[in-house]
Nucleic acid binder design. Structure first.
Lengths: 197, 197, 197, 197
DNA sequence: TTTTAATCGAGACGGTACGTCCGGTCTTGAA
DNA sequence: TTCAAGACCGGACGTACCGTCTCGATTAAAA
């Protein structure tokens, strides 16, 4: 499952697995990502350190998994579809901007990005488990817009998503500018103009 | 001076400062950002640990400074201006893509981004010392294009730069797709279409 | 038998018992007494750890038993009896000295002594199973000498054995001096003089 | 000093050294030799583990040193000399027997012997620092007896000491018999008879 | 002869300690 | 004062074993 290592039949103790992921999540919010140690996770989870090392490659992998576990149920998500792609995208982008203003999201998301940048394997998992499903939902909405003739029929939807979101993420991560609803709107408008049929 | 601390006099030993920055840069490329330690830097630089703690706030600050020092001379840089903004941008973007393929750039750039994400102070320095000048040069070229009527007169040039570069950086950092010359071209074309007068 | 615990039936797997004792003996000579672990014994014997814990009290008990098993057949041993007690004892003592020079004996004998010093129960077993029979044989020879008028009739034979052997063992265990044939002879001569009729 | 390792000028912190040796001694008497851990010593001494590992090879070496430190002042010791070697030796041997009955001595001495048996380097230190001086004092008394014609002039005094003490030590370590004043007397009488002029 | 109960190999588990590494502070002696 | 050097306290690392605890799968006794 997810970030597992070598040993493992079904011998794995589910109770311990859950306790570890819970402990990791709690600790990240309590002391901050950088100060979470394997030892603290083990202690809080009431688990031997070996049990962590047996099933995860690294501290980053545990913490990553603890985030994964959170958004497990977010499978069948779908974007609003009012027929007006511009309005719908603005709604979604403004929501994202609002999310980024929540200080409770700050630490975990920055932590996640640090980890992803330096660990290709976690990056792959991130794409597969977290970004993938969300992007798929977004692309579904864009495809619907294509069918409605609001987007070029040959538009590269991955590229479209990048144009929409990458500037937003970068600005937030680098703190290189304010994240306002107007900014969200501007990104939507520019992207739609770029991909107009 | 860059990331300096309190003690300040001109008593500072320039020889040691250089040795530390050199050691830091070498170590990042040799063992990877995450495994560079203050102790290793001090040992390699032939310097006491205290000398590092005296002048820098943190490991990140040293490493960051070691990159800063590299691109110190890149002040008066200018982008090519053939009169054709699309061609010029494609040239520049393709060069960036090529740079990112160089494995020697990999470690430092990822290190830099890790540091920036989690340390607002370093992020500010990054914008001021590294990104700032480069972005200014790029905006100068875009302004020239505006004057030539190739871009909307009211275009937000910061936004334009984000549209051009953020997707590229994100794709590279997250390893979420291939970085090809065609990809560079596509970004240029889309951005220009979005900002067409 | 010997150092057994509670569960007891004849259900015990003889094959495993032998494999464990063999593995223990091999490991002591290979890696040294102090570094032999239950886990290593189990692994080498192809046996579950529980099977060891089921039948032995401690690591020491296993190792001790593995030595016991070795000298099981040494029951009906007898010392040479040429009629000349001095010559016979010198023969035996010189043989002991020679034995101690064999590096293959080193590890097990030191291990045995370590165990005996700190574990009264094993010490009792040692006296009963290992030292006892051998000492009995030696005392038989001394008794024969008493009958021949070569030793005082009221000599305490246990004390005589201690005078003969304790210096030898101590010198070897503490490495406090060379073990030569002459040394063996000297011990015999002194002891006989001390117990002369 | 004594069991030191590699680094060391006079940079060594005497305060820490003392605290470590004190802690080790205390712990041995409190929890028993086998259960004393480096970690516990460091904690009790208020010292980093590294500070122990820097100056000692092993747990055994620390504990050994902590014993050494105890009997540091026992340099100029001398045995009683009433002119009667037999009486004097019996006094001393009976005192030794009495010492061995003290349960407070039990644990440390057995520990010491375990360590010595398996670690040649500690054995050498034991001979040099602990046994050596004491043996020298005993040999001085024997030499005085030689001068008085109570012992053979050519007697090997090391051998004489072994004859006196090795049986006693072995009996105590192996618990192979009672340690009584009469036993002490018997050893003295036998040894003197063996070395009579 | 079938059941049934213990032993067996395997190895995950909660723990403890290991010996190492590094962080950040402090001390020493040379420049 | 700064510097190189490095000892120091502290704490986390990742590993090795401890002794206990499941798991099927033999396997030998009682039914």
């Amino acid at each position: 499952m997810s970030t597992a290592k070598q040993p493992d039949p079904a011998r794995r103790n589910e109770r311990s697995r859950q306790a570890i992921l819970d402990a990791a999540r709690e600790l990240v919010t309590e002391v901050g990502y950088a100060k979470v140690t394997i030892e603290a996770i083990a202690a809080r989870a009431g688990v031997g350190k070996q049990t962590i090392y047996r099933w995860w490659r690294s501290r980053g992998a545990v913490i990553f998994d603890s985030f994964l576990a959170l958004s497990e149920g977010a499978e069948g998500l779908a974007l609003p579809d009012t027929g007006d792609i511009e309005a719908d995208l603005k709604t979604v982008m403004r929501a994202t901007v609002a999310e980024f203003a929540d200080p409770g999201f700050e630490a975990p998301i920055r932590a996640l990005n640090s980890e992803i940048i330096n660990d290709p394997e976690l990056a792959a998992q991130y794409r597969e488990k977290l970004a993938g499903p969300v992007d798929e939902a977004k692309k579904a909405r864009l495809r619907s817009a294509q069918r409605a003739g609001q987007l070029a029929a040959d538009a590269d939807l991955d590229l479209a998503l990048e144009l929409l979101y990458a500037p937003l993420y970068q600005r937030w991560l680098h703190r290189s500018g304010p994240l306002t609803p107007e900014y969200a709107d501007a990104l939507v408008e520019l992207t739609l103009r770029a991909f107009r049929p």
